[in-house]
Design a protein around this nucleic acid. Structure first.
Lengths: 347, 347
DNA sequence: CTGTTAGCGCCTTCAT
DNA sequence: ATGAAGGCGCTAACAG
């Protein structure tokens, strides 16, 4: 049994002839450009449908000429995960070059709403699309909306601003990520009772808050015998996280599980190891980096909830490109999954 | 800080002029075609390198004209996972059409070496590339080698034939998958002791054998207090799996964990539920289908080791395309990950 | 509102 | 061994 999935060597010209119009008119209809009588539009669309006509992507690309320009606005700090995304963008350079796409990196203090907003505003007009690791704040939201209204396609990356008019969000569902972390901690903890610690960067960050929410949801409903302690805020800083963690371990000898919501992992790990209790408690965190990879391998960490940075980089570019071209987005392909990474399935 | 990732509006013509040759010669060099003096080749390659020249993919695609044809040789049975891959290929039809790519599905009894080999042989010459769910057998290996020698690009899908001259394997590392399953079962089992059951389709299947190998590796080295029982072979059939499982449960009241290596999941689940012990033991299996999804949600299954069928479908097409074009493969992008799927991170 | 026309950058004969 | 020339299918002016 052989089943043909395609058979369309038709061209714009064929459609034009069949619809009794000129090539240019078909092109106008195809791109919803003005200047065509409604009746003609209907007729052309009809024959396009009938023939299941697909314009040749390569030809369209070639004919356009002008290169598309995208900007990636990312945190200026030393965040390992963000660096990974940038690095994967760098690896795409040949791919980008072959498609005459230009990607510029713009570093910004994404934790400062005013700075972020100003940066975004400065991009207007220069780019066909912008990907931004966003902070959910009114100023930022306004800047995003302005960009979008000006015709620039906007994609939020890793951290979303749902109430804005961004065209797409490339990142994970952080509530579900928190739930997953909760289920893992709950199930991996052997003892029937004990305390669970949570360390986050800041509960003011949308993604951290959502993860904590999901985590608590699962703990409350399914592992109510475990005692979840108040959230510590380490600001994603190593030293501060280490200090907080050390104190916590001293004060509570009965901690059986730990959920690290954000970064600051080196500090937390150090506190754990110094306490000598590293292998007696369950430690679940986020993202696979050189740091967490090592901790997973030596058993200090039990699992990392991860979003694939390479996938996120590529998805952001592809989505931006599709938006710019007015093509549909392959949602299944661009969806970012919540990966559970343990020692044996480290990527 | 703005960093430019690209800036290449150069064309073949520019390179030709700069190298002091004609357009056609540059093209020949670019594609390693014969008929160019070694010295000229060197000179042209040199200026290509110097300018970091990237040919415009769209233009190349357009100029070729002839459509590329790929065949997907897949099992003819009712395997849910395989159907998912086919379904995702179907969803790509617009994408394929826009690139003038033709993909044909070829159903075959992939468990019969002779039939599979014959099917593969019949494809020679008609296709630019073939993706095949392969059986590791001398006949099949020979057929793959013949195809490859004849210039057809060959990609093994899901199940590999490492010793053949296939160009690429799209699928997971099954030993690592087995290890991951072992670690999950070991860690999720609460009790310190008990028996672990393994059900596979057949130990003669390379992927099943590898998974079992990895599983046992981990159980032996890290969970030696658990007693792994001999492998049952359910032939991936529901009834047979149910029968075997039911008998096993009757004979051994102290089973605390179960690893289902292949399909036959409905039968196994039925046996478990009928025994009334479904929620008392850890059940880890493979792949997310309508069946396993339901079992994860209702708690009968605890985790599924999964390979993303959509990703596999798209990766296979992209790899075949890259191979056919002579482009490099983005190995990081095309690598298939071992996903751990639990209730809260169901895709 | 609609049609005509000149490329876009590369591949592919066909000459030389 | 190398060069010249004609498209591939579509877009974007420019005419009508």
């Amino acid at each position: 049994m052989k089943e043909q999935h395609i058979s369309t060597p038709l061209t714009l010209r064929d459609i034009a002839r069949q619809a009794g119009v000129s090539l240019a008119t078909v092109d106008r209809v195809l791109h919803n450009r003005p200047g065509v009588r409604p009746d003609t539009v209907r007729r052309v669309k009809e024959t396009i449908k009938q023939n299941a006509f697909q314009p040749h992507a390569a030809a369209a690309e070639l004919a356009r000429g002008r290169a598309r320009r995208f900007a990636f606005v990312m945190p200026s700090g030393p965040n390992l995960f963000m660096h990974q995304i940038q690095s994967y963008l760098g690896e795409m350079s040949a791919w980008l070059a072959a498609r005459r796409l230009v990607v510029e990196m713009v570093a910004a203090d994404v934790f400062n709403p005013a700075v972020l907003a100003t940066t975004l505003e400065s991009l207007a007009g220069d780019f066909d699309g912008v990907a931004v690791v966003a902070l959910d704040h009114p100023r930022v939201r306004a800047a995003i909306n302005d960009l979008a209204d000006g015709g620039t396609k906007v994609v939020t990356l890793v951290s979303d601003v749902p109430s804005s008019r961004r065209d797409h969000y490339v990142g994970i569902d952080n509530i579900a990520a928190g739930r997953t972390a909760g289920a893992l901690v709950g199930r991996l903890v052997g003892s029937p009772q004990g305390k669970i610690a949570i360390v986050a960067g800041s509960q003011a960050l949308r993604d951290h808050a959502e993860r904590i929410f999901g985590f608590n949801q699962v703990m409350a409903s399914e592992f109510s015998q475990l005692d979840v302690m108040p959230v510590l805020e380490g600001r994603d800083e190593d030293e501060r996280s280490e200090y907080l963690m050390t104190r916590l371990l001293n004060d509570h000898p009965d901690i059986v599980g730990l959920y690290n919501v954000g970064a600051g992992t080196p500090g937390i790990a150090k506190a754990l190891m110094d306490s000598g209790r590293a292998n007696q408690m369950v430690f679940v965190g986020h993202d696979v980096t050189v740091v967490t990879r090592k901790l997973l391998l030596n058993g200090v960490m039990d699992a990392a909830i991860s979003q694939n940075p390479g996938h996120e980089a590529r998805a952001a570019v592809r989505v931006l490109l599709a938006l710019a071209r007015g093509e549909p987005i392959l949602s299944e392909q661009e969806k970012i999954r919540i990966d559970i990474v343990m020692r044996d399935n480290l990527p």
